[in-house]
């Protein structure tokens, strides 16, 4: 009996050892990576920076942040950047609690979030890190080419619930699909994309028909739905559309100035209105006071083309870059 109890204790202590082993192991491993990547990097004096940066927030911006972090750590191997994706709102909640250094957002900060930041004494500003075109996508067999913002509002606003059920219920739709039922896919209410679309199209953040298919934070579900449904429609970030050019068709959007397609040029020259939007990373000024965070913020802007092309996003224009750098400089003050 004693022997068995002893071996139980041995197992328990063994698992403690495993824990300790993992903890101890992490340091030499990190050093190895440092030397390796430092040898391969070309940037001058990069190995000086150290510390860790915690980023959280939007699932739209997240992938680009991860790429930026990965590229940044190749040049600055002493810095540990981790990226989390808990949605724009979830990110701000942690950011304004002082728990993260930077927060990704696919919309501007809300008043309630602003207040939380103020209460906790977190001063911040945002840096535009990429441009995004919210793409309105339909099934590839849909003959429609262009949609006006009024038509979009007719389809999506809260009064449409139960009444606008077929494509023919909306004025100006092609006769070929007039009898086809709508299948509408949209993100959940935690999503910055949801806030942005409802605000721009339906005139009020959160105003949306209640009978659309809620896909939560998973834009890929919308792509799958639109690919398979003759009467389907969804609004998804530009990167998801770019990865699914063969699966879905993006409509041109007429916001009053003619039909504009969601292309890289149209987004950068701001003509893709009103569904073109900026993607932001909010930095707290206490975080920016740290050299590694400042370097990362500048890296986000300076390497905008590399980061965003890799991520499938639309990078900043030189003018936007300049503006962003000036903003960072003023934040550091």
């Amino acid at each position: 009996m004693k022997k068995k109890l002893l071996s139980l204790a041995a197992i328990a202590s063994a698992s403690v050892l495993v824990l300790a082993g993992c903890a101890a192991e992490s340091d030499p491993a990190a050093t190895v990576t440092v030397t390796e990547s430092a040898g391969g990097s070309t940037t001058e004096g990069a190995a000086e920076l150290s510390g860790s940066i915690l980023i959280d927030g939007s699932s739209t911006v997240g992938p680009a942040s991860e790429i930026a972090a990965e590229l940044f750590m190749e040049v600055n191997p002493g810095v540990r950047v981790s990226v989390n994706i808990s949605g724009t709102g979830g990110g701000f909640e942690k950011f304004c609690n002082g728990e993260t250094d930077a927060s990704n957002a696919s919309r501007y900060i809300k008043e309630s979030e602003e207040e939380l930041c103020k209460t906790n004494g977190i001063a911040y500003d945002f840096v535009t890190v990429a441009n995004d075109a919210l793409s309105v996508v339909v099934n590839r067999d849909n003959p429609l080419q262009c949609i006006t913002t009024e038509q979009l509002a007719t389809i999506w606003n809260s009064d449409a619930s139960g009444t606008i059920m077929k494509w023919g219920d909306v004025d100006g739709m092609p006769a070929a699909i007039a009898d086809v039922d709508f299948q509408l896919y949209g993100p959940g209410t935690d999503s910055g994309t949801f806030d942005f679309f409802t605000d721009e199209i339906n005139g009020e953040s959160g105003n949306i028909r209640n009978d659309y298919i809620n896909i939560g934070e998973d834009d890929l579900l919308a792509v799958e739905g639109v690919k398979g449904g003759a009467g389907a429609m969804a609004f998804i970030p530009y990167s998801y559309y770019q990865e699914n050019l063969d699966n879905v068709k993006a409509l041109e959007v007429d916001g009053g100035a003619g039909c504009i397609a969601p292309t890289l040029e149209n987004v950068q020259n701001l003509s893709y209105a009103p569904l073109g939007r900026g993607l932001f990373t909010y930095f707290s000024n206490t975080a920016l006071a740290r050299a590694e965070v400042l370097a990362f913020a500048e890296y986000l802007v300076n390497e905008t083309t590399l980061i965003n092309t890799t991520a499938g996003y639309v990078g900043l224009t030189p003018a936007q870059q300049e503006e962003a750098l000036a903003k960072i400089a003023s934040l550091v003050g």
Binding site: C22, A23, E25, S26, A29, A30, T33, L54, D56, G62, S65, E66, A69, E70, M73, R80, V81, S82, V83, N84, I85
Partner: peptide, 9 residues
């Protein structure tokens, strides 16, 4: 986090 490239402690 969804993106971490260093060993955890």
């Amino acid at each position: 986090a969804t993106f971490v490239t260093f060993d955890p402690n």
